[in-house]
């Protein structure tokens, strides 16, 4: 049910934006648009299916924690 809803949202976006680009022959734009939409779609599907997606926040945090420690800011998450 959720997946049907999700797919229809993405199809709607594609139908809303796509034909205009095809009509104006904006192929390069269509490529980037398609890539972004596909990326968003993949993320959403993975989330809906409950596949754990690694969060980049964790990476950022482990990069930043040494600097924060240097400044004397306590960090609880690693």
């Amino acid at each position: 049910m959720n997946i049907v809803l999700l797919v229809s949202v993405f199809i709607a976006i594609g139908l809303f934006e796509g034909p205009k680009m095809v009509r104006e022959k904006l192929w390069r734009e269509l490529l980037v648009f398609g890539f972004l939409l596909f990326f968003g779609f993949t993320l959403s599907i993975l989330l809906t299916l409950g596949v754990p997606v690694p969060s980049p926040v964790r990476g950022i945090r482990s990069l930043m924690n040494p600097i924060l420690k240097l400044l004397g800011i306590p960090t609880y998450y690693s």
Binding site: I13, F16, E17, K20, E29, F33, L36, F39, G40, L43
Partner: peptide, 8 residues
Amino acid sequence: HLLYPLGT
């Protein structure tokens, strides 16, 4: 046209 994909 990039906005809605970015939004998702």
